[in-house]
Write a protein that binds this DNA or RNA. Structure first.
Length: 917
RNA sequence: GGGCGAAUAGCUCAGUUGGUUAGAGCGCCUGCUUUACACGCAGGAUGUCGGGGGUUCGAAUCCCUCUUCGCCCACCA
């Protein structure tokens, strides 16, 4: 690409389209297993597996944030010389996808049962094939440098093999079993849910106190009652007992007797069980084993029946073992309607003692928000304790770190109290449970391959009807996507992966389970770093969502502001683990700064290219030390500082050993700090000072012009490298136009900048900066418009004398002054500034200066300085400070004291001579 | 009910193990067609660091307490 003049405005749309296509055509995102050090290569592998979005998802801001973070890290590592693999892909998302297709069917007036299982699955597959994976192409629009040749899908044949392998191995190890117990059931989705999928929501409910009449021991006994309290009176139809605490004195005589269950008119026993808390309510609790997990356990302990009194869709009915319990008036009523009806019936019968407001929490289905119904059923479970053990150890022993740190405690707490995982779902969309039942002998077979006949009796078999929890397959993602269970080159080269970047919401759903399966099947942790970023919220701190209408469409942002602006905004605003607040009502406020920054870069590039030209540029390393100007030395030193700051903010990419050391454990991944360090260098140092200072040199032919060209190109080149992970498009577009550009290369694969040693005295240019700033300040204070030339005098300190003498021309240009370097102050009215080393800047402003005003200004300054100096000296004379503070802090204070003393003397002298005191 | 986090300029947020005069961006005020950029340049104003108490030579930073938000977890009917 030639270095012809750039168009005055940056066309982000055209540039992004063109560059992404060229990156892809050149295969720069494609990983090569053979280059990994774990294979035959010499590069450290660096792998991230994407948190697979639902296959039917469309890009939202949360994806935008998540994938920008991953891409920044990936591009940084790629430039750092790692063999980088970012595995993209999608999740078949069992319930979510099935719900979408069911809704489509509903519009046609049909349910999935009307079309049948095979047709439904076929239809869903077709739907996914047609519209699924949209999000992956949308990720390209934000610049995601994923390896699209390795795109994975949880329901692909390859990953389905991994799912079966995992299931069968766990089954063979006795870690998967069939359990008959109360699980969370969604009456709308018609499936069981795991504990994690049934989310707690606080509600203002009611506590109903109901009295159950005790069956009289004989005809003469007075009527007695026992009161129970419940928030769900409708479950009363399934009561099989009333439990009291065995130590509760109030009820000793009632244990073993029976009560008549109202409405159902069934006689049930009073049992003694520790579960009953004597301090709650009346101390007696109704037991409904089929509709409450605790009651189920009580029921088991006492060998009680377990009638199910609701249909799967949540209507009252004699579903299982409930014959004779449901009166016709209630049969078929929805559970909440039945609640009202039962309350009325109880009231009418005089059995409702009281109703109290009762704040408590109910669980809702995480996909459809329907209140979950505890329900007795047969499900497949994974025994979690043995799997959790190595996953706990890995974090405790620092093999895995979780950032921000506080989530490690949450993770550990959850794993310590982990309960068995219900993995079967009564859905049709997903991996069918690979278990076959013999119709003849009843043998149960878990198998990697489809089973045609019973392996023991050759009888006919049928497969389990359920599918697996969608998180079962995503839990295998770090290795299933690399080819497991086969021993593939990718698996060898790239497993374990390195980092996992996601939101805390799925720490348990996904992250913890990947760690457990990583140990269970691969014998190693799947990654060494879990980076949990925040959530995207609006200015009211409400989570952005389509349904709430407070979302921002990332593609809108890309169209209006460009992908780079989107990325810059996301990364710059991201404190470690902190939420990202964006204003959906004012996109300009959120994304304007990002766009402005991109424009700034573009204009720096325009300036550079028009002024540097096409001619070859010297390498900075080939320039003799004596040829560097103060500005050159300064900007090269600032560049070093910027590189160091960026590296420190990004942190170590991997642990130095098998475990994280203390000093590196929570270091890095401060993307906001990285962004700020790079931005500050480019804008406030390179553009504001170096670029301005170099203008004169570029217009004058000669050796110095070539030095200036070389340093400018070098600094800009490195600046673009530092910024490329954040704003890949504009940096690549500019970089390819630099005179040092080699055809066919990409910034994407260029090397990450390294700190180097450059000659010169960088600090000397700081004097110049200080002088310029002082003059500008005087201009501002005295209202001398920048357009107006004025003359000034510099009276430099001895050390600064050669600097100001030599740099007068530059200072004049930057301030539009004419300056004289002198040894004495001029007579007459003048404005003064005293620099930190005592250098005086004097602007004679006959007529413009009010001597009194100038005096009071200088006096005020002196006074302030003296106050500070007093404080500083007190600190330095304080033994405690000198002995306890860090030595470098003390040293800095001492230097400061010297500097301030010089300045104070100068200021005092100035005040004395000017103001006559 | 248990645990965690947050509260700093009008807004969104930085502030690393306590250590100069608490910073950035946006917004605001003043000025500027300075030949890359008005999506810019130069200058400026703005903070009882949520309240109270404590530790310390020194606290936005550590401890206690209160207030207000937010998050996670939870079988008390």
């Amino acid at each position: 690409m030639s270095t012809t003049e750039l168009p005055p405005t940056y066309d982000h749309a055209a540039t992004e389209r063109d560059l992404y296509a060229r990156w892809q055509d050149a295969g720069v995102f494609t990983a090569h297993a053979e280059r990994s050090r774990r294979a035959a290569g010499d590069r450290d592998p660096f792998t991230i597996v994407i948190p697979p979005p639902n296959v039917t998802a469309v890009l939202h801001m949360g994806h935008g944030l998540n994938n920008t973070v991953q891409d920044v890290i990936m591009r940084w590592r790629r430039m750092s010389g790692d063999e980088v693999l970012w595995v993209p892909g999608t999740d078949h998302a069992g319930i979510a996808t099935q719900n979408v297709v069911e809704k489509q069917l509903a519009k046609e007036g049909k349910s999935r049962f009307d079309v049948g299982r095979a047709a439904f699955v076929a239809r869903t597959s077709a739907f996914v094939a047609e519209t699924g994976g949209t999000i992956l192409s949308q990720l390209k629009a934000i610049g995601a440098s994923a390896d699209w040749t390795r795109t994975a899908y949880t329901l692909s044949p390859q990953l389905s093999r991994a799912v079966r392998e995992a299931f069968v191995r766990l089954y063979e190890r006795g870690l998967i079993y069939r359990g008959h117990r109360v699980i969370h059931w969604c009456p709308r989705c018609l499936t069981s849910l795991s504990d994690e999928e049934a989310e707690h929501h606080d509600v203002h409910g009611r506590l109903y106190h109901i009295s159950y009449p005790i069956t009289p021991a004989n005809a003469t006994e007075e009527p007695r009652f026992i009161t129970v309290a419940t928030t769900r009176p409708e479950t009363l139809l399934g009561d099989v007992a009333v439990a009291v605490n065995p130590n509760d004195e109030r009820y000793q005589d009632l244990i073993g007797r029976t009560v008549m269950l109202p409405i159902a008119e069934v006689e049930i026993p009073i049992v003694a069980d520790e579960y009953s808390d004597p301090t709650f309510g009346s101390g007696a609790v109704k037991i409904t084993p089929a509709h409450d997990a605790n009651d189920f356990e009580v029921g088991q302990r006492h060998g009680l029946p377990m009638p199910v009194i609701m249909t799967p869709s949540g209507q009252i009915g004699e579903f299982m073992d409930a014959a004779g319990r449901v009166p016709p008036a209630l049969d078929g009523l929805d559970r909440f309607a039945a609640r009202d009806a039962i309350v009325q019936m109880l009231e009418a019968a005089g059995r409702l003692e009281k109703v109290e407001p009762h704040p408590h929490s109910v669980r809702r289905c995480y996909r459809c928000e329907t209140v979950v119904e505890p329900r007795l059923s047969d499900q497949w479970f994974v025994k979690m304790k043995p799997l959790a053990e190595p996953a706990l150890r890995a974090v405790r022993e620092r093999e895995i770190r979780i950032l921000p740190e506080r989530w490690e405690a949450v993770y550990i707490n959850w794993l310590e109290g982990i309960r068995d995982w219900n993995i079967s779902r009564q859905l049709w969309w997903g991996h069918r449970v690979p278990v076959w039942y013999c119709d003849a002998c009843g043998k149960v077979t878990a198998s990697r391959d489809d089973v045609e006949r019973c392996p023991s009796c050759s009888g006919p078999v049928h497969q389990d009807e359920d599918v697996l929890d969608t998180w079962f397959s995503s839990g295998l993602w770090p290795f299933s996507t690399l080819g497991w269970p086969d021993d593939t080159a990718d698996l060898k080269a790239f497993y374990p992966t390195d980092m996992l970047v996601t939101a805390p919401e799925i720490l348990f759903f996904w992250v913890a389970r990947m760690i457990m399966t990583g140990f269970a099947f691969m014998g190693e942790a799947p990654f060494h770093t879990v980076y949990l970023h925040g959530t995207v919220r609006d200015t009211n701190h409400v989570k952005m969502s389509k349904s709430l209408g407070n979302g921002i469409d990332p593609l809108d942002v890309v169209a209006l502001y460009g992908a780079d602006a989107l990325r810059y905004t996301v990364v710059a605003g991201m404190g470690l683990g902190a939420d990202t607040i964006l204003d959906p009502k004012d996109l300009d406020r959120s994304f304007g700064p990002g766009r402005n920054f991109v424009t700034k870069l573009w204009n720096m590039g325009r300036f550079l290219l028009t002024n540097v030209g096409d001619d070859s540029v010297l390498a900075v390393t080939n320039i003799p030390a004596s040829d560097f100007t103060r500005a050159d030395a300064w900007i090269l030193e600032r560049l070093n500082a910027a590189i160091a700051a960026c590296n420190a903010a990004l942190g170590p990419a991997r642990p130095g050993a098998t475990q994280w050391r203390d000093d590196e454990r929570y270091a890095g991944l401060r993307l906001n700090e990285y962004t700020e360090a790079a931005r500050n260098f480019v804008w406030n140092e390179l553009a504001d000072w170096y670029l301005e200072s170099v203008k004169g040199r570029l217009t004058t032919a000669g050796d110095d012009r070539n030095v200036a060209r070389a340093v400018l190109v070098h600094a800009f080149d490195y600046a673009l490298r530092l910024l490329h992970p954040i704003v890949p498009f504009v940096t690549e577009a500019l970089w390819q136009r630099l005179p040092v550009y080699k055809n066919g290369t990409f910034l994407t694969t260029a090397s990450w900048p390294a700190v180097a040693r450059y000659p010169g005295q960088p600090a000397e240019f700081d004097r110049v900066i200080e002088g310029v700033a002082a003059i500008r300040q005087l201009r501002g204070e005295y209202g001398i418009t920048p357009g107006k030339l004025l003359s000034g005098i510099v009276i430099p300190s001895a050390a600064a004398h050669p600097i100001f003498a030599a740099e007068t021309g530059l200072i004049e240009r930057l301030t539009r002054c004419t300056l004289t370097v002198a040894k004495a102050s001029p007579a007459g009215a003048a404005a003064h500034q005293v620099l930190s080393d005592g250098t005086e800047i004097v602007l004679p402003l006959a007529g413009a200066i009010d001597l009194e005003k100038e005096c009071s200004r200088l006096k005020g300054e002196l006074e302030g300085l003296e106050q500070q100096l007093t404080g500083l000296r007190a600190r330095l004379q304080n033994e405690n400070f000198v002995s306890r503070a860090r030595p470098d802090v003390v040293e800095a204070e001492r230097r400061k004291e010297q500097e301030w003393t010089v300045r104070r003397e100068q200021l005092a002298g100035k005040v004395a001579s000017l103001c006559g005191t």
